[in-house]
């Protein structure tokens, strides 16, 4: 797939990993691993950017005598996912058109 199409998709993947429940850094990396392997230092700027843009909020919970930061998706975070899916759907219909024309020209 063209890199252009994937631009921004990692942000959406991170947001999507928060849909079912709030999550924390280590777990986010784990849940993304079937799709893409990212390092801790790659995740950090994404989380910061999404928090700054108010797509997610964070809070800390004590765990084994230390703090663990949890992230929660906001309403505009969910809107961002919806927007991405709609854009992608448009792309898919363009894809369908092109594939259809290719198929017809071959017949």
């Amino acid at each position: 797939m063209d890199t252009q199409l994937k631009r921004g998709s990692l942000d959406i993947c991170v947001l999507a990993s928060l849909l079912k429940e709030d999550s924390y850094g280590y777990k986010i990396i784990q849940s993304l691993s079937p799709v893409v392997e990212i390092s801790e230092s790659t995740l950090y700027p994404i989380l910061k950017r999404l928090e700054k843009g108010e797509y997610l909020t964070s809070y800390s919970i004590e765990h084994n005598g230390r703090l663990r930061r949890f992230y929660r998706i906001t309403a505009s975070g969910k809107d961002k996912i919806r927007e991405y899916l709609l854009d992608f759907k448009e792309l898919l219909s363009i894809y369908e058109f092109i594939a259809g024309e290719v198929k017809e020209s071959a017949e």
Binding site: K6, S9, V36, T42
Partner: peptide, 10 residues
């Protein structure tokens, strides 16, 4: 690094 990781998404 973000762009590089995105390239790998299937």
């Amino acid at each position: 690094a973000v762009v590089e990781a995105e390239k790998k998404i299937e």
